[in-house]
Design a protein around this nucleic acid. Structure first.
Lengths: 212, 212
DNA sequence: ATATTATTTAACAAAATTGTTAACACAAAG
DNA sequence: CTTTGTGTTAACAATTTTGTTAAATAATAT
């Protein structure tokens, strides 16, 4: 029976169960006993493998923050395309990545943004990921503006526009749902419309104001 | 010593302390003993006035949800102005109301959006507040579009654009802060820029695409 | 085979947390 | 003054929750 020794069955089962528990209930609402039950192990095993609830949580949080940063990078990182096309693809990729991890935004808002000590530890990582991306984007935006192809904008403001528009609907969906009228219940169709709207609003934001 | 009997000193002190505790820590993270300590009463008083932790929480949640709905209504409710001006004022008022209650969005995202049973109870209220507002806005948008003054848009999509853009920066501020560069630490200045950006992006969204 | 190390279990322990209760204080009403 | 109702306190209780530990079992190495 060969099995790579890093893939402890139970350790992995615990991490899977913990991910679900922490993502849906948050750190304070999560119960180690509930994680153990879902993983099919006694709760003493949690402590054997991870010592404390905090340590399991950190494992999950680290992974999710990495995914979050990665999603921004891979979404907007495609080079070799005209800027407007790169942005359109970036918005769509970013939207799709969030759609595929729809509970991630709320988790990050809950667990990171509300605890200064947690995001203190991530400041550096965030900067190292975002600053080069912003610098490159700003460079391209400035060039396009100098050629008169686009309105001049600040890269951070533009990225914040995009992320706000892409993320917020997933946070607010439960409250939105009763307002959707004819497309209530048809989440997929709403999301498709929303994705298109986000592309369109950013396209128009960058459009040069017509001279009159 | 006259004192309106509904203004029990301690009852009010408990509600104040509970508001702070629940807003900053959420239902699961909040401790009734901590609320009692902050209010300067024994924790038995909490149960005397409110029976259970749940009941105190509901009081706070109800008030905050009302404030949330009210903020949208009062922000966009000003009649008798041209639509573009009404929208500009609406965006600015809504932004300012959130800025004055900066911990509200996270609270609502945490406590309502993640608990189906909680927002189930609010569906009706949300509909009764939002549907007339949306219908009125859609009417005006359609008129302006028919006159050729504006691009044609769906009112719900437009409102979601605005709320996304206004709310998200407050949710994400802790993560944004290290990226602000020269205006890091100067939250007021960043928020002023952000408010202006939100007005501008919506203005351009509604702008008719130039014929070519 | 034996020794050593890793994994697993069940029972226990400590602390925290929400909620209850009986007694007490005190003002107002009769 | 006595009664009645409200507010208040301290002590207690029940449960939950995280974490520990000693003993049992399985795996691995010597």
């Amino acid at each position: 029976m060969f099995m790579p020794e890093h893939a402890h069955n139970k350790e992995h089962a615990i991490l899977d169960a913990a991910e679900h528990e922490f993502l849906t209930k948050g750190f304070d609402g999560a119960r180690t006993t509930s994680i153990a039950r879902a993983a099919g192990v006694t709760h003493a095993m949690l402590h054997y493998y991870f010592r404390t609830k905090e340590k399991i949580f950190e494992r999950i949080l680290d992974e999710k923050m990495r995914l979050m940063g990665e999603s921004v990078l891979t979404a907007f990182g495609t080079p070799g395309l005209p800027l407007s096309e790169r942005l359109r693809q970036g918005i769509e990729n970013h939207f799709d990545l969030i759609a595929a991890n729809a509970d991630l935004p709320r988790f990050v808002v809950n667990e990171v943004f509300s605890r200064p000590e947690r995001y203190e530890a991530m400041r550096q990582r965030i900067r190292r990921i975002m600053e080069p991306l912003l610098a490159g984007l700003q460079h391209d935006l400035d060039e396009a503006a100098a050629r008169g192809e686009m309105d001049s904008v600040d890269a951070l403001m533009l990225l914040l526009d995009i992320i706000s528009l892409n993320v917020f609907p997933f946070l607010a969906y439960p409250v939105l749902e009763p307002l959707l009228g004819d497309l209530a219940g048809d989440k997929a169709r709403f999301l498709a419309l929303r994705r298109a709207e986000n592309v369109e609003i950013i396209r128009k934001r960058l459009q040069k104001t017509p001279q009159r």
